[in-house]
Amino acid sequence: MFTGIIETLGEVTDLRHEQGNLHITVESAIAAELKIDQSVAHNGVCLTVVALADGKHTVTAIEETLQKSNIGHLKIGDFVNLERCMQMNARLDGHIVQGHVDQTAVCTDFREMHGSWEYTFEYNASIGNVTVEKGSICINGISLTVVNSKKNSFSVAIIPYTFEHTNLQQVREGSTVNLEFDIIGKYVARLMGANATTPSNVF
């Protein structure tokens, strides 16, 4: 489990394909503190550390992960948002994040707003995921608050600290990002959908 509060940026130094898998090597300030089998969120995707060496760690993304996230779009030199799993005695500063990306979205607008930044993202709403005004959304592993929620799009406002310390600084119109929708909202949506299709005489 994660919080969506990014610890540091890592730089992709090697990419190696093996059958349907992608082995990703990342250099970062936290590599020396990592352990084999540890879970680390990469752009919001929970991946397991499989190797460590020289200030770098390696993780493996399987085919399903590559299909549902932007991990397969990574290039050598790209920066990824990194977060280690939360400690049970720590404050939950963001929101409950599982590290399971639901789908991707495309940035359709980017604006500088007198010291802050506003991003608008469009996603495929037919899958059933929804956002709500002032609700939580996880973008590339970053816990953010939704503004201007619509059926298949939403916006977020970014403060300077978040802009400077995450890879949102590289996101522009046309960029693909990972989305993880709020887990509580997903359960509510599933229950509402189930109730709508369940005959009333069942209750």
Rank of each mutant, 00 (worst) to 15 (best):
T120C: 06
P199Y: 01
E83Q: 06
H95K: 05
G55T: 06
V40T: 08
P199E: 03
M1D: 00
Y123F: 14
L15K: 03
N167A: 11
I76W: 11
N21Q: 12
K134F: 10
G94L: 06
E7V: 07
A194E: 11
G44A: 13
K56C: 15
I127A: 09
G94C: 06
G4D: 00
T131C: 05
D78P: 09
C138I: 14
S126Y: 08
G115L: 12
S143W: 02
S69N: 05
T162M: 11
A31T: 04
I137Y: 02
Q19P: 00
H73T: 15
T145F: 10
L22P: 03
A41F: 11
T108Y: 01
G135K: 09
V45D: 00
V147D: 02
S149Y: 01
D14H: 14
E64S: 13
A29T: 09
S69Y: 05
M192A: 12
T198K: 09
K35F: 00
T166E: 11
N124E: 10
T60F: 01
I183T: 12
H17K: 14
N124W: 01
D109M: 02
I183M: 13
H100D: 02
C46L: 07
G10D: 08
T145Y: 07
D102I: 00
E118G: 04
E173N: 13
A51L: 04
I184L: 15
E33T: 12
R91Q: 08
N152P: 02
T60G: 02
G10L: 07
L66F: 01
A90K: 12
T3L: 03
T162I: 10
L179I: 09
S149T: 04
V59L: 15
V146G: 05
A105E: 05
T120G: 01
N148A: 15
F79R: 13
L22T: 02
C107K: 06
S200C: 05
M86G: 03
L191G: 01
A157S: 14
H165Y: 07
K75T: 14
D54Q: 14
Q103S: 06
V97M: 09
V97W: 05
Q98A: 12
I36K: 11
V50W: 00
Q170A: 14
H100Q: 03
T145Q: 08
Y123T: 04
D14P: 03
I137C: 09
V49I: 15
G185W: 00
N81Q: 15
G20A: 15
V101C: 05
S28G: 05
G185H: 03
F203D: 01
E27N: 10
A157E: 13
N70L: 04
I183A: 11
I159K: 09
I159N: 11
S200Y: 03
N140W: 09
M1S: 14
T48F: 13
D102P: 00
L52M: 07
S175N: 06
V101F: 01
E7C: 01
Q170E: 08
